[in-house]
């Protein structure tokens, strides 16, 4: 179709990734702290606090149930915060993208570079949270060694819509709409805190067409150690979302920078 731009994974994209890494190195301490405060609080307060009153969830202790879910959310949020606010600044405030397109870089390469970086960010922040789970004795299976795979894809998956929103937002406040209308509802209803099995079918089906629930399924199955065949469906949905959403930011950014 005319006008559609795909991310372009090239040497240039790797250099955009490198730029993001060089920038991250300068503030990684505060970044790690900011991204862990909330999920860790949730884990401790809800898992161990509320967990005292909740017998079991889907056959496992409550804290064991929400740990993997919060890991998936940590990855999603780390990527979403960085991509929305960070990319908004790079596009509208600092002119970083504007400067990049005057070089041989294209909008598709910039987006591809951001995907690569956010995939790594997701892996990084997910892994640190994994270590916390490990220390708390909440990891139950060697299947966990496969976690980097879903984490990398999760990074690319959630950076796509976030980057698109950052490209379309007319001001900083509009980014918050994305959090309150998309990210937070997904966080609450994607099987992080309770299984979907007891929900009315219509609502459950509605939730099943969103992406986070499938990431949560995969991460939980790997950490708790009971992978089933349905994980292939989850994986297919996650990959389909990642590929499908990836054209949104590349197309929008190209229009914005060279329209």
């Amino acid at each position: 179709m005319k006008g559609i731009v795909w991310p372009r994974f090239s040497h240039g994209a790797v250099m955009v990734f490198r730029r993001d890494f060089l920038a991250w190195v300068k503030y990684y301490k505060s970044s790690l702290l900011l991204n862990f405060g909330e999920p860790l609080t949730n884990l401790l307060a809800l898992g161990f606090g509320l967990g005292m009153y909740v017998a079991k969830m889907d056959g496992v202790p409550f804290v064991d149930f929400i740990g993997p879910g919060l890991l998936a959310v940590t990855a999603m949020n780390a990527v979403t915060f960085d991509t929305t606010f960070g990319a908004y600044d790079r596009l509208n405030v600092n002119g970083v993208y504007e400067s990049m397109v005057t070089t041989p870089l294209s909008a598709g390469e910039i987006v591809a570079g951001e995907f690569l970086w956010e995939a790594c960010r997701s892996l990084l922040y997910g892994t640190v949270f994994f270590i916390v789970l490990l220390a708390l004795g909440l990891v139950h299976s060697w299947w966990s060694l496969l976690l980097p795979l879903p984490l990398l894809i999760t990074g690319a998956l959630f950076s796509a819509p976030a980057l698109f929103v950052a490209t379309k937002a007319k001001n900083n406040e509009q980014l918050f709409y994305y959090f309150s209308l998309v990210i937070t509802p997904m966080f609450m209803f994607s099987g992080v805190f309770f299984p979907l099995s007891k929900l009315p079918v219509l609502i459950r089906d509605l939730i099943l067409i969103t992406p986070l629930v499938h990431v949560v399924d995969i991460v939980r199955a790997l950490i708790l150690g009971h992978p089933t065949d349905s994980l292939w469906v989850d994986a297919a949905v996650v990959v389909a979302y990642t590929v499908g959403l990836s054209i949104l930011p590349a197309t929008a950014l190209k229009k914005r920078l060279t329209g």
Binding site: R19, L22, A23, Y27, N94, G95, S99
Partner: peptide, 13 residues
């Protein structure tokens, strides 16, 4: 090589 009107240097680098 392009020098644009604004100082669009990368503030994170």
């Amino acid at each position: 090589g392009v020098v644009s009107q604004d100082d669009n240097l990368d503030p994170d680098l």
